[in-house]
Design a protein around this nucleic acid. Structure first.
Lengths: 199, 199
DNA sequence: TCAATGTAGATTAAGTTAGTCGTAAAATAT
DNA sequence: ATATTTTACGACTAACTTAATCTACATTGA
């Protein structure tokens, strides 16, 4: 049930672009994205291209060029990215919504394994299609601020060392936020960190 | 998030062995298992060996030999089988319970992606570790009986054609059964088919 | 003994993964 | 103009995985 490195790198980079945007950096170079997460730069280049073709990011060439998100973070779901890079979320083709494939079993309608895998695919999709880049970015930023750590891509990151502590206090004030639509089957760590207790 | 063919074939065969046991067949040959689900026999042979090494099935050699489950179906979880054949359930190593691996990101404790993938891994494990072969076998048999279809591996399968209809009525009578322990996050198709409405 | 079956290991063909390399094109700075 | 820095794009590859197949051997029942 693995996510490929490619998919992982794509998500990491998109999250970082989301953080950059949140922090005021409109353009980030591949080299910087790669260094920040210790990814192979040339491989990441390839991945960024895929993301660009898919309309998730935009780029500027030349000196001081780089990448930025092409859409607001709320408009990019994690599932969308995973499907783009790694294909269907479903463990087996015969339960995929986005790319159904007939399986070898003689009778799908009476296949217990299929029922089970349908549940798995729904559980996965229930999480990955519900959460957006905005959610992941928010969780990450919140944790960093809570612990008074410098934010990546922040212009003032390496300047004053007292600045983070200030924003940490600010963050705690903003901690309570609007609840998401009711979650039935996907409560979890992220969900709790987002402060959504409506379940 | 794919399950490999190997994993799929392993599960299909174990389920079929479970059905066979339920129906009174104590030994099934690889050839029959392969034909029943249209799997490559020689490949399946290899897989059965893995399952044997892992103590999930036993075999008898020679003419009229074959395989049978080595444990009651209730004692074999789906997750156990998937982990055996395909490795950890977690989408990325840094959220695996059974095979943790450090990831490239600079700080796991503040990684939003990790939180999200932890939820995914828990959702998957919540299903695959909860359900056993017994559950899947039961669902399969119930559906077959409900629709009056002949049961595979049944000695009387090709005999009387009226027999199935009788067991179908019987099955409906037995439909209500003891509830499983409360499920929080894994309600789904299988769950409903097992008649567990305690959620 | 013979035929059917599991046991075991080597081999393989195709595809995927996770990259690397090299060059072109664009933007900026001087 | 020219040099420099960056993305763009395509070709290439080494290692691994998948999904098998092939061959020879061991065991058992009739």
């Amino acid at each position: 049930m693995k996510l490929s490195k490619k998919g992982e790198y794509a998500l990491r980079s998109l999250i970082n672009l989301g953080i950059a945007a949140e922090v005021g950096r409109s353009l980030v170079q591949v080299a910087e994205l790669a260094e920040n997460e210790q990814l192979p730069a040339k491989f990441l280049e390839q991945i960024m291209q895929l993301l660009k073709e898919a309309g998730l990011v935009e780029s500027e060439r030349g000196k001081f060029g780089g990448y930025r998100l092409a859409k607001p973070t709320k408009k990019i779901t994690i599932g969308e990215v995973v499907r783009l890079i790694d294909g269907p979320l479903a463990p087996i083709g015969c339960v995929s919504q986005s790319a159904y494939e007939k399986c070898t079993c003689p009778d799908e309608a009476h296949c217990g394994l299929r029922m089970l895998m349908l549940d798995v695919r729904n559980a996965i999709a229930g999480i990955l299609d519900r959460y957006t880049l905005a959610d992941v970015v928010e969780v990450t930023l919140r944790k960093l601020r809570r612990d008074g750590l410098p934010l990546p891509f922040s212009p003032e990151a390496d300047a004053a060392s007292t600045a983070p502590r200030v924003s940490a206090r600010l963050a705690r004030k903003q901690a309570h936020r609007a609840a998401k639509p009711r979650l039935d089957a996907t409560a979890g760590a992220l969900h709790e960190l987002l402060g959504d207790y409506t379940i």
